[in-house]
Amino acid sequence: MNLKENLLSVLSGNEVDITPVVSVTQLGVVEAMEKTDAFWPEAHKDPEKMANLGSSLYELAGLECARMPFCLTVEAEAMGVKVDLGGKDKPPQVLNSPFSSADDIAIPDDYLDSGRIPTVIEAIEILKEKYDDLPIIVGITGPVTLTGHLIGVENLVRLLKTDPDEIEDAVENSLDACMDYIEAISEVGPDVICVAEPTASPELIDPLQFKSIAKPRLEDLAGFINEKNVLHICGSTQDIIHDMASIGYDGISIEEKVDITKAKEDLGKGAVNLKAGGKCLPKGGVNPSSKIIGNISTSQTLFTGSADDIKSDVKNALDAGVDVLAPSCGLAPLSSIDNIKAMIEARNEYFNI
């Protein structure tokens, strides 16, 4: 079984002999930029450099995937938001938006031809031609997070409390933009699409608001994506894991703040609820429970930890039953390649390979 088959088999609910080790989140690091001559910000807008950096940790460390892009500002920029593309160790950031209120949000006619969307699509094509057996993971921005980029996160949080109906409309418009982007991506055939929804974290919005506003749109996205799909939400998502489990994603990406053993228990409950509710099983029909992806700390272990720290965290995650071993969130740009190698070597040692 090759690397692509191994990952897709896990996400289909099948048992495999070796737990995959990938990154469903941002993986661009400066050391890899130096070795591939694919630096930020150029790698954000040049398809060849994006493809080279996106596959760099496979080539240099043995990470079992390619993954791009390297930020969550692609969709917002294409909708007219001004973005600072940053520097070699600074990711892109939203500067300002043309939308003064939630009611103003509209998808431009040239949306899919704007900004870096064509770059991402061409980079996928490059990697598809280069690799037959390496899974290609593409990250997109979730509708709640995209709404925050369009009207400002502070405004989003405020309006959730003062005018939730207005936010409902705004998130619905953002969902349409997400779907248009997914449709364009799907035409070139990535293997996995990861929906990153950091603004839906319980640290920013109340779990009840997650259930009423974020969850229905994330369900719509899960049903719309033809590829294997993963949902990543930052922070301590323990309080919403049960709801995340019932959405229908093939994988749930979690940070180190989440207890894997308890999360798997909650996902099992979510699977039972899916059956009881009479909903269709996720694609493949094998296992109605999302798989747990994570949760090796990117802020500490993979950034500044020792090889022993990484080995310990990897063993703990595998002992707890993680389905796909991965960084807990986007890699810090100054993380070392050696630490990524150590994560993979620890997985190999665990399975005696």
Rank of each mutant, 00 (worst) to 15 (best):
E34H: 07
P143N: 08
K315I: 11
C280I: 08
E265F: 02
I344Y: 08
V230W: 00
K35G: 02
I252D: 00
A123H: 05
E203D: 13
Q238V: 09
E77M: 08
D89P: 02
E34S: 08
M68E: 12
K269D: 10
K45L: 00
S335F: 07
G87R: 12
E15H: 08
D46H: 06
D338F: 02
D109Q: 13
A214P: 03
L325F: 03
K264I: 10
S186H: 08
F210I: 05
A346V: 06
G223A: 05
V24L: 06
F224C: 00
D266M: 15
D103N: 14
I296F: 03
V30Q: 08
A38F: 04
Q93V: 13
E59W: 00
N155I: 09
E256F: 00
A346F: 05
T199Y: 13
G54P: 02
D308I: 05
G62Y: 06
P20Y: 03
G86S: 09
K291V: 03
P190C: 09
I310N: 00
N226P: 00
D319W: 06
D309W: 12
A102V: 15
N229H: 11
A222F: 04
E349A: 14
V29H: 04
K4M: 07
T304C: 04
G148N: 02
E122V: 09
D163Y: 10
P108W: 06
K49H: 03
V322G: 03
P202V: 12
C178S: 15
G270D: 08
K88M: 10
L8A: 08
S328K: 06
G277W: 11
N173S: 15
V324L: 11
T36L: 13
L60S: 05
D109K: 15
D259L: 06
L60D: 03
C194H: 02
A66F: 02
E345F: 08
K315F: 06
R217Q: 12
N339L: 02
A326K: 02
S186R: 07
S12T: 07
H232Q: 05
I18K: 10
E129T: 13
L127K: 03
D169Q: 12
N348P: 03
E345R: 13
D313V: 08
G248T: 00
D323M: 03
L134V: 07
I240Y: 08
H242R: 15
D323N: 14
A320N: 13
V195R: 01
K228V: 01
S9D: 12
V22E: 00
G284S: 09
E64I: 03
K128P: 03
E59Y: 02
